[in-house]
Design a protein around this nucleic acid. Structure first.
Lengths: 138, 138
DNA sequence: CATAAACCCTATAAATTAAATAGGGTTTGT
DNA sequence: ACAAACCCTATTTAATTTATAGGGTTTATG
């Protein structure tokens, strides 16, 4: 399951996508709309900003805004950023690889092999679903 | 990512699959092979047994054994049993449904809609990969 | 140019979940 | 009878997630 961080991030991105015509959107408004803690959401928006998905404007009248087209924000990117690996095991993660302690020889491990296949097929799904899909479906 | 419980369960099932010709296999042997705590693994094997994937024989000379064909043990079943939902959000889980607190109207939620699609495609993968795939690939 | 609005940043605390341990009970082959 | 091995439940520990706290910096506006 996705963490609340990722879930909140998706809600925030959706909110920003729906208010694309406005210059900026306040943290406060997103937090209130979904009943999320303002401060918790703030941390999440900062991470999204650092990752290059959002822009922001400081000072009075400031706020956040999307700096990418919704179709260019795949779920895989949001999930990786806030939740970490998409792979089911560390030994098959592309971005967060670590060997598995209980596995003596990865090259001979059938679990490893199958999980690589699962990872590749899962990635196909999560790289193809984007914020645009969320916006048009909602 | 999968919990250690699920990972250990997969290793145990794989071990049992590889030793299908022997009548029973000891917890101890599986635990030692993979450097897993005997007691922790014991709890996992009990769960697998209650779920109907394993049989066991008590007393001296006893142990565990597979009671299903490896092809009839899909990853989805093992993951659901030990890790819970496969869906990425509680509001789209088939087996562990719960509404999302931050979502006012599920019927109008684009995140919900997209996650249903992700769930269905993910299930296709995890229901089709079975212990047999692990055994033949290893 | 003072003020208030709003984002920026880091650290810490609280809550929850996962992982491991403990300790005995029951069954069964020899 | 005895020891090997599974069975069961509860508790403890560790790790992670979630949330809070507290100030810092920037900027529009009157």
């Amino acid at each position: 399951m996705l963490s609340k961080k990722t879930k909140y991030a998706l809600h925030a991105l959706t909110y920003l996508g729906k208010h694309k015509d406005e210059k900026t959107v306040l943290i406060h408004d997103i937090a209130e709309e979904h009943g999320i803690s303002h401060k918790f959401l703030e941390n999440i928006l900062l991470e999204l900003k650092k990752a290059g998905m959002l822009g922001s404007k400081k000072g009075k009248g400031g706020g956040y805004y999307l700096i990418k087209e919704p179709k260019d924000i795949p779920l895989s990117k949001v999930i990786r950023l806030l939740d970490g690996p998409i792979a089911l095991l560390p030994c098959v993660s592309l971005n967060y690889y670590e060997p598995c302690a209980e596995c003596k020889n990865e090259a001979l491990c059938g679990i490893n092999k199958v999980m690589i296949q699962v990872r590749d097929e899962t990635l196909k799904i999560l790289e193809n679903k984007t914020l645009e899909d969320i916006l048009k479906t909602g």
